[in-house]
């Protein structure tokens, strides 16, 4: 028997090991982001029985299925409102939303802007692989202009969203972008997000070699090279100025962190009858 199968992995305690192997393709970046999230959750030292993970639908959405925490794999786009209800019903819970760009920003875009506006106390990790991987590589709201996908065979005629700017305009109080190559920064960012109150949004670029890569002549290693060569750390950069362009550059870093009352704090103060 291969000895690697008998050794305990440091994340075994928080993984549904009986569900491994996972469905993610070789060279896919989701697993690395997922590991960072698990390491961050573990290292906070918080009570794991009080941490819940909610996902929507898609390759990244499968994350909820592999984590040995209370975990909910919901409908396409609806992870955020589901997580909202969960957090409001039991404020003791730390609720992490782990999902993809298509799920959170196309079908779930309306929920994203409203959850951010409310400053709902959630940590949102968005794996951005620039396309719909699960269904075979269709254009998403994040697909770069002119990129090829199965539904943009002539190149994408549309421009993509700038996710940090969208999050900022909507009212998110913590905004960061990393790539899956920047695991240390990413893990630290997730830890920070978990430790604070309010709507925290972390975008993570991750390769989808099977979908996006195949049609845009990018092997897994090419994505990593681009992440290494083109990523520029600019902590505190204004979200309107961050760029995501495989030729011109990729702005990464922690862009925004500020405090304002969460939905629950405002609700308690304004709606709850006060003891006089």
């Amino acid at each position: 028997m291969n000895s690697s199968h008998t050794q305990k992995h440091p994340l075994d305690g928080i993984l549904r090991t009986d569900r491994i192997p996972h469905i993610w393709c070789p060279g896919c970046g989701i697993g690395t982001v997922f590991s960072s999230a698990l390491i961050a959750i573990q290292s906070t030292g918080a009570d794991l029985t009080k941490t819940a993970v909610v996902s929507g639908i898609g390759c990244s959405g499968r994350g909820a299925g592999y984590v040995k925490l209370d975990s909910y794999h919901t409908t396409h786009g609806r992870a955020l409102p589901f997580a909202t209800g969960m957090k409001l019903a039991n404020p003791e819970l730390t609720v992490v939303v782990f999902s993809g760009d298509g799920d959170l920003f196309a079908i779930g875009g309306n929920h994203f802007i409203h959850a951010a506006r409310r400053n709902m106390d959630l940590t949102v990790i968005c794996v951005n692989n620039l396309n719909y991987g699960m269904t075979g590589g269709q254009a998403a709201a994040t697909t770069p202009h002119m990129a090829k996908t199965t539904t943009t065979p002539f190149g994408n005629p549309e421009p993509p969203f700038n996710l940090p700017l969208l999050a900022y305009a909507s009212g998110a109080t913590y905004i960061a972008r990393w790539t899956m190559l920047h695991t240390r920064d990413l893990t630290q960012s997730i830890e920070e997000a978990l430790a604070r109150r309010g709507f925290s949004f972390i975008e993570v670029l991750a390769p989808c070699p099977t979908g996006y890569g195949r049609r845009n002549k990018l092997k897994p290693i090419d994505f990593l090279k681009i992440y290494q060569e083109k990523a520029i750390v600019k902590n505190g950069a204004h979200p309107a100025e961050v760029i995501l362009d495989f030729n011109q550059g990729i702005t990464i870093g922690k862009f925004i962190e500020y405090d304002r009352p969460t939905f629950s704090e405002s609700y308690e103060r304004i709606c709850r009858p006060q003891a006089s």
């Binding site: 819940a52 019903a89 409203h114």
Partner: peptide
């Protein structure tokens, strides 16, 4: 807790999330 959601898909999702956390929603 009462919350007015952004649409009915969100309202229904929020009720399910609350119920999974133990509340009657």
């Amino acid at each position: 807790v009462f919350i007015q959601m952004e649409d009915e898909m969100a309202a229904m999702a929020a009720v399910l999330g609350a119920s999974c956390a133990g509340a009657k929603g």
